[in-house]
Design a protein around this nucleic acid. Structure first.
Lengths: 228, 228
DNA sequence: ATGACTTTCGAACAAGTGTTTGAAACTTAC
DNA sequence: GTAAGTTTCAAACACTTGTTCGAAAGTCAT
């Protein structure tokens, strides 16, 4: 099986006869798998669905990724790194020592990468946020442990930042409000419309990124800063 | 196959030799299925897992409910009716003509049935809210259509109520805020902790109903009533 | 006790699942 | 051109899935 080193080199290889700029086999599998995992969930997506739509052989998944579980991990890991990095970069920009740190700036620092993601199909578009929201409730055994160790810096950075931005509250209260804030932000970008389950929601386009931000930021900031 | 009429009568039947007050076969299936659907999701839960834990024969599911899809619908329908009724009753109580209608009262009218549910294992406990949050992202083909027609009254009642409680806002803004409010309320009671996916969350007991309400209500009310 | 239902049970069904294998095709370097 | 290495492919693997069926067991009114 192809190892990581060769995988990083292969993009430069031959591929002379341009066939509609068809991406790598592994990339095509990742793209299709990402979409299908979001649409139908992990369990309901079969490898045959993926390989057919990706126009690759069935065995290609196990050859390139090892197993279905490992494929899911690869799908997830391809996006999470850059996303977290983008958030931390935004944090760096607003955490300048002299500058005051507001809750709104913190909310925006998370919302902006979500917006950028939603508008850039080459980076998975809005799919990744939806994938995260699915992963959240599906409670994947593999990811929970793998991620919780690796990306705890994300929560730590935001926790410290929120402590600075909301010095009037105790840390337990802040933790709860962060919990609520990230919940609503994630689900808003994922387009999970709770009210649709009870009947036609009034929100006409719950997945329009600009509209989301316009309404989302004031809501979250107000919730975060409300007096206790 | 047993029809609905007989099903309503059967609870009165024999069952003389008390066997630890074991419930009906159909009820036992519903109870186990509800728990497993929440834990593992619809697709990842096999009929054999259900029938083994319920200590019934494999064919019992198809005999009593017809199919796995129909079983899921039954699991869901058993809870949704009483829950919606409880919310509407709360609404009735606070919508007295003379009385002023506040956003906080509306939030509480939804949160109280959630709390009652969480504390009453005989009605599914917190499981049902978690089931709803799973169903929400799993986007079940069956439920979306069945529910959207039947329970549109839920959304309509709350829409009208929120229009009354927040007359200073346009209906589009209210729709968005309702969208956010119900999103965070549902996920809070479902115990979906977004931050856990990135690392250890600071919220120690995100599933304690009383703690949820204490922190949730101020957050949501502030978000709903924030000036635009 | 008889007969009519209702419910349970074990066994089997066809279809779909993730994974493996070994040979073929392709690519690359000498 | 040859050989080594990489990638694709068709076929099969063992296994699980939801569903069906007919017989056995249980229930109940007469």
């Amino acid at each position: 099986m192809m190892n990581k080193a060769t995988q990083l080199i292969t993009p430069i290889k031959g591929q002379d006869h341009m066939e509609a700029n068809k991406p790598d086999t592994a990339t095509r599998i990742l793209d299709v798998a990402e979409r299908l995992f979001v649409e139908h969930g992990f369990e309901a997506t079969s490898l045959r669905m993926i390989t057919q739509q990706a126009e690759v052989n069935l065995a290609a998944v196990n050859y390139h990724f090892g197993s279905k579980d490992a494929l899911f991990e690869s799908v997830f890991m391809r996006r999470i790194g850059p996303f977290v990095a983008a958030c931390l970069a935004e944090l760096d920009a607003i955490e300048q020592p002299g500058q005051a740190l507001t809750a709104e700036a913190l909310v925006t620092s998370f919302v902006r990468p979500c917006l950028a993601l939603s508008k850039d199909p080459s980076r998975g578009g809005a799919l990744f946020v939806r994938l995260m929201s699915r992963t959240l409730v599906e409670n994947h055994r593999l990811l929970r442990e793998a991620l919780s160790q690796q990306y705890s810096v994300f929560v730590q950075r935001y926790s410290i930042a929120f402590q600075r931005a909301l010095p009037q509250f105790e840390s337990e209260d802040i933790a709860w409000r962060m919990h609520f804030a990230f919940t609503v932000m994630f689900n808003a970008f994922a387009g999970n419309d709770v009210l649709k389950i009870f009947g036609r929601s009034q929100v006409v386009n719950a997945r329009d990124p600009d509209l989301i931000i316009k309404h989302l930021v004031p809501f979250v900031v107000a919730g975060l800063t409300a007096p206790i």
